[in-house]
């Protein structure tokens, strides 16, 4: 029995990756929940918008790299993120102007907007593939690790190593900053409050003189920022591939619903709930258990609850359990 090594192994293979993944999902789910709360539909084009934001960031990253501009130990992509956000903002605002606004003026039902977003999804899907192709792209540069496994072992003299990648560290720090900024905006600024008011009671907000156009514009801007950051962090952590981003739709929706659609805090908690369950259920626990259990009880199998290919199943199971026992989600969203 060796609890210290067990904890290190657990951190290395479960906690650190899940925290990073959870932060990425939380940012994505925040975007979904904002659109659901304020524009009142679930945006099926979310994953592809995320891909587009990442794509623009990658293009700027390459351009900076070709000019010899880098951030040293940090990934150059961080420098390119503002440009990615700007590009995505232009895209979503143009889409809103050309596509969505028409339906809002017709007072279209939310389901109509959902179907419209499917059309937008197809268009974005084609757009990202036309621009950068469907293949995997790796755009992380700079120092790979904050601590690598060997250094950790030498430092602590433990058998197990703990590796924290730069991208994981950046993910967590960026996510915390972005979320803090978002909450400050929503709860402390006049525009932020007007967005909450619009989401709460549209008629009363309009009668109070809140401009729907402005609320919608600002919502899309925030969503563009959140989603680009989420996409770039995910891409740095893993890699960029349009199809993977499209598939992130399911865990992101699951996170938003588990937390309670329309609730920003719920989206964050939901993101981590989904991420931790996904990693924990698809992780082979053999190593951790070997350290943690007395010799006699050590498992002989891999102790992997589900193969990693079933990670979507995990988000889905969590979702079902929450919906059955708490249909409004963990944080009383707007579901019922």
């Amino acid at each position: 029995m060796d609890l210290l090594n067990a904890i290190v192994a657990l951190s290395n293979f479960v906690i650190v990756p899940a925290v990073a993944y959870g932060a990425q999902l939380a940012l994505g789910a925040l975007g979904v929940t904002l659109i659901y709360g304020i524009l009142r539909f679930s945006n099926f084009a979310h994953g592809d918008t995320m891909a587009f934001g990442t794509l623009v960031t990658i293009l700027f990253t390459w351009w900076f790299q070709s000019m010899g501009i880098t951030l040293g130990v940090l990934p150059t992509a961080l420098l390119a993120i503002p440009f990615g956000i700007a590009g995505t903002a232009l895209l979503v605002l143009a889409t809103d102007r050309v596509v969505y606004r028409f339906y809002r003026r017709k007072k279209a039902k939310p389901v109509m907007l959902v179907i419209v977003s499917i059309g937008v999804m197809f268009v974005y899907n084609g757009l990202t593939r036309v621009i950068l192709g469907p293949d995997d792209r790796n755009f992380a540069d700079g120092e790979r690790f904050i601590i690598n496994a060997r250094d950790f072992r030498e430092m602590t003299g433990l058998e197990e190593g703990l590796a924290i990648r730069t991208t994981q560290g950046i993910t967590v720090i960026t996510a915390v900053l972005v979320v803090a900024l978002l909450f400050w905006f929503l709860n402390r600024t006049r525009t932020g409050k007007s967005m909450r008011a619009y989401s709460d009671n549209e008629d009363l907000a309009l009668l109070s003189g809140i401009s729907p156009e402005k609320v919608e514009r600002v919502t899309w801007l925030i969503v563009a920022a959140l989603i680009t950051v989420a996409g770039v962090l995910y891409g740095l952590d893993k890699s960029y591939k349009p199809f993977t981003y499209f598939q992130l739709l399911l865990p992101i929706f699951a996170a938003a619903i588990v937390g309670g659609l329309g609730s920003p805090i719920g989206a964050i908690v939901g993101g981590f709930v989904i991420a931790f369950s996904e990693v924990a259920i698809t992780y082979a626990w053999k190593k951790v258990l070997e350290y943690a259990m007395p010799q006699a009880l050590e498992p002989d199998g891999l102790v992997q609850l589900l193969s990693t290919d079933y990670k979507f199943a995990v988000s889905f199971m969590i979702l079902l359990v929450v919906l059955i026992f708490r249909p409004t989600g963990l944080f009383r969203g707007k579901s019922v």
Partner: peptide
Amino acid sequence: LLTMGIILL
């Protein structure tokens, strides 16, 4: 893909 989206819209 692009075309299908545009047709739908």
